[in-house]
Every structure is written in structure tokens, then in C-alpha cells.
């Protein structure tokens, strides 16, 4: 949302009946940016598929590589398309908590499942 706001300084944000020609330029600017993001997303998808065909010696490294590309892809979508890069502090705080608890859920669960008592059938 803030991209648009900065792109049209001086006009009240989306006041009805505002000068349409003044917006047309901004719209095309915005459209171009979206196109770049879309192209970048397509590249990331291509890269992931390409990476999955690389010769490999075990899946761990390859999965990490592909997921890294996926993270870049997710960053593009979240950052630009969801406007997360220019969001309010409130939203960041909220997502920060969520990220922390998600990390706790996944990290602690996986750690707990692999920290089995020594000398049992699990270990």
C-alpha cells in the first residue's frame, strides 16, 4: 500500500474522483514492478526444477538448496506482493511472535524426537 502512497505524493490516498491521468503513470510503474517480481518468481521456479536435476550424492544438500531457492521465492511474494517490506510495526510484531512459536514447534518437536534415552530400543 505504501508503494502506491509514495508514488503519488500530494494526493489524498485514493480519494474518489481524483485526477485519473495523474494515476495512470503510477499504475504503469507499479505494473512494471509487479512484472519484474513475476519474472523473478518464474526464474526461481525454473531454478528449483533445474536444481532438482543436478547430480547428487545424497538428498540432504539438494533439499537444502532447493528450499533455499523456495525461500527466496517466498520472500519475493511476501515482501513485494504482500507489501510486507513496507508494513506497519504492528504486523511485524505479530509475525515475529508467530515465527518464534513456529520455530519452537518445529524445532523442539524434531529435537525431542531425536533425543531418545541412551540404551533403549529408540537409540
Amino acid at each position: 500500500m505504501d508503494e502506491l502512497k509514495t508514488a503519488q505524493p500530494g494526493t489524498a490516498r485514493a480519494a474518489a474522483g481524483a485526477d485519473p491521468s495523474g494515476h495512470a503513470v503510477d499504475f504503469h510503474q507499479y505494473l512494471r514492478r509487479c512484472l519484474y517480481v513475476f519474472l523473478a518468481v518464474l526464474c526461481a521456479i525454473g531454478l528449483m526444477i533445474f536444481a532438482s536435476y543436478l547430480p547428487h550424492y545424497g538428498w540432504a544438500a539438494k533439499v537444502a538448496l532447493i528450499l533455499a531457492v523456495a525461500c527466496v521465492n517466498a520472500f519475493l511474494v511476501a515482501g513485494f506482493l504482500m507489501h510486507l517490506l513496507s508494513e506497519k510495526k504492528l504486523i511485524y510484531t505479530l509475525l515475529g511472535f508467530t515465527a518464534f512459536f513456529f520455530a519452537g514447534l518445529m524445532g523442539l518437536t524434531i529435537y525431542a524426537m531425536h533425543d531418545m534415552p541412551v540404551g533403549t530400543v529408540f537409540h
Binding site: F101, G104, L105, L108, Y111, A112, D115, M116, P117, V118, T120, F122
Partner: peptide
């Protein structure tokens, strides 16, 4: 409260490190 849950599961065969946490 989000990081205490496994104290319901001490009996499931939990390692000492994670149990300590």
C-alpha cells in the same frame, strides 16, 4: 506457555537433554 508442552510427555521415553529443557 508455548515452550513447556512436553512436560506432559516425560513418560514417553524422552532424552535427558530435552527433558531438562
Amino acid at each position: 506457555s508455548f515452550i513447556v508442552w512436553a512436560h506432559h510427555m516425560y513418560l514417553t521415553g524422552m532424552g535427558t537433554k530435552i527433558a531438562t529443557f
